[in-house]
Design a protein around this nucleic acid. Structure first.
Lengths: 137, 137, 137, 137
DNA sequence: TTTT
DNA sequence: TTTT
């Protein structure tokens, strides 16, 4: 009975940070920048927003392979606010985007040829379940 | 490398039409109305848009159970334009929304009590794959 | 060159908090809950996510009038992470959804009749600019 | 009380078709392709969907300047089904996406330098109303 | 702190 | 053909 959806198109601020849990599951953190321009007092201001993206499993593995600092990404996911304790034992909150799928966007650069050939496979869904039936849709 | 996403919140125009294929797969068609108001020549105009929603399998079966004429729905899906031939053999096009998931919205009406108890199960995803691992997310 | 979009459907946790700046501009804060169910170790778990919505101007004024604890809302907006200093002078971050528009969803409750007559006006866009031309669209 | 939203990321199939009405208002038609891959009978199938995008006014003028065959676009808009009569007087339906805003995506190509310098201005909203107040948001 |  |  509810919807929690985030859609972002932006640029990656640094190479993805990928860790593997003991059970082999991959987790990937990506910082994604979006920016917005508006006019304040006759002056154009550009405001950049940084988003913390978290990817799991296959999605994380594919991000590890193809996403780089500077990549332009489409990301679809959900908001999640995590609670943690800082050094002083104070409760802190961090809001992240739990990615459900992502897409590499834009043309490949010239020194990118190898990866970009593989790029069509970079469109992945966390909950992907291929349609394998012989049905008219 | 592409995104095709439709998000609708509207009201259902008639009870869903559900068919079952020979292999037991359910297909459900729903007409959903969205409306928009604007002012033209100082007069308020309301424009209603009718959308053809197509659901398959589990999604179709749940729609059959819970969706009714008048229901308010959230629908998420993709645009699909089908080709068909009319009686004169002319090529025709119909654009539908292939639903990936939907949600019943709004409070239940009073004579709706039984169904509404079951409503929490009405939030379904076509590609749902429950997270069953014991992982911190 | 970027997209920063949030789409939420959820329930309001408490009556909106509205302030008016010295220049008369209204600002409204709303806590919105979305929830998600999944299965972990054969047990159904419901996870609730709380979102901080910020509305300005007309949007804030309309929210003040019509939104209440328990209201079901559709909210569309952008992610904004604000920086502030806590008592110890430490830098803190809070992520909010800056609303661009919102919609009241669901049927009115019975003791809600007066407000609900006015509800059609509750669908507002922050940047609304009515189409007033006599054009075919 | 309803939502009608389309989000597309795809590639433009041909240079935009732009017309100017007698009152000087620009209207632009763009064909946008999105594609989807899935597996049927162990074979990878790519299905391309073509969307008819309609832009008005400023949006149309900007599209005319910057969008070309092959451009990668983010488009946000609403579904609109138009009725018209074919030669035989039969009622026909065409579903289009009425664009509310669009974004050029991807890196500029090399022979694109002039336009790409201007590209930051290519992110436009149909109903844009710049925030000009000196307010903390 | 909401809702089902 | 829905809803407000």
């Amino acid at each position: 009975m509810s919807v929690n959806k985030v859609i972002l198109v932006g640029n990656v601020g640094a190479d993805p940070e990928v860790k593997y849990l003991d059970n082999g599951v991959a987790v990937c953190n990506i910082r994604l920048a979006t920016s917005e321009s508006y006019t304040r007092n006759d002056e154009k201001v550009t405001q950049t927003e940084w988003h913390s993206i978290v990817m799991w499993r296959k999605l994380a593995e594919i991000a590890e392979k193809y996403v780089k600092k500077g990549s332009q990404l489409y990301v679809e996911g959900r908001l999640r606010t995590r609670t943690w304790e800082d050094q002083d034992g104070k409760k802190r909150y961090t809001t992240e985007i739990f990615a459900d799928n992502f897409q590499m966007l834009g043309r490949r650069s010239e020194n990118d040829t190898v990866e970009s050939e593989a790029k069509p496979q970079a469109a992945v869904t966390n909950t992907a379940e291929e349609e394998t039936d012989d049905l008219p849709f």
